[in-house]
Simulated assay, not measured.
Amino acid sequence: MALFLLGGRFFKHRTDINRAVTASQSYCSAMASGRQHVNGVDLFYEKTGSGKHAVLLLPGALGCTRTDFGPQLKYLNKEHFTVVGWDPRGYGKSRPPDRDFPSDFFERDAQDAVDLMKALGFGKFSLLGWSDGGITAMIAAAKNPNMISRMVVWGSNAFVSQQDLELYEAVRDVSRWSARMRQPMEEVYGADVFANTWKAWVDGIAQYAKRPEGSICMELLPLISCPTLIIHGEKDPMVPNFHPQYLLKLIKGSQLHLMPEGKHNLHLRYADEFNKLVEDFLED
């Protein structure tokens, strides 16, 4: 079966894309958006809800609030939560600058995320991080323990293994993808920018394999003190099952919830189940 791609991640069904796009279109009327100058760049953000519990959504590789979190921005409880989506520097509407991938790009994103929330007036908040966004969230939580209330991560890893490298390399060349796979990201970036940025991302994530044990943020995991929920789709084609098990072992007091039919995009494919799971955890 053909794979589809949205927000830098794979989809098995066209209905997954339709649902995410429909949600993205329909929440816009209830959404406040803007740009905030943070650490030398203008970061685009969207905000919805009026709840006392602030929640920041952190997107995956090349992803942004538009592509990655439509069902969460629309359906998470707006009375209980104030939900903020953002485009990391060089992604989505947070351009210029063009995206680059120095050796500390996850740390840079984590600092940007925390400083954006500070600039928006939030002194304490929770994190929902998907894929690369989960890595960013874990770094932010480890380095800012007094600011992070709770954290949910899914489709994320703390190190790069040889198996991971093979998965990344297999999707490097976007010209080998179907037109339907490329379309959502080409609509955001244009064909050439998307292709070049994706290749740069593959190189950027691969550089961690040269570190001891392939570490991205392994040494930071024991420093995470906030209640943490790890969600993993057992059919995730991009993140092998040993990654969530490792996070569970190293993040003190964390919980692991497995979704037997879940793939990498479980928060979109199974949005109702995911949102209920997240709301119950955040309100616990």
Rank of each mutant, 00 (worst) to 15 (best):
D164P: 03
C28R: 13
V153I: 14
S149L: 09
P237K: 05
H37F: 10
E261T: 05
M259F: 14
P145D: 00
F105G: 00
C64H: 06
F125P: 06
T82F: 06
I148G: 13
A142Y: 00
L256H: 07
R180Q: 13
L220K: 08
G253L: 05
E107M: 09
V38E: 02
L223P: 02
G8P: 05
A61P: 06
V188I: 11
D280R: 10
D104P: 12
V84P: 10
R19S: 10
L6T: 01
A200H: 01
G49A: 02
S156C: 13
P96G: 06
G7R: 09
I251L: 05
G190Q: 12
V174E: 09
R172Q: 09
D100Q: 14
V188C: 08
Q207S: 13
H267W: 03
D272A: 12
V188N: 08
A271F: 14
K235C: 15
R172D: 07
S94G: 13
M238I: 01
S94P: 08
N275C: 03
P96T: 07
P145S: 10
F125N: 04
L120Q: 06
L167T: 14
A137H: 02
I231E: 04
L6W: 00
S161R: 02
S33H: 13
A110I: 02
F44H: 15
L229P: 05
E213Y: 12
R211M: 12
D164G: 03
K210L: 13
A32V: 15
N144D: 08
H232S: 02
D132Q: 14
G7A: 05
E169W: 09
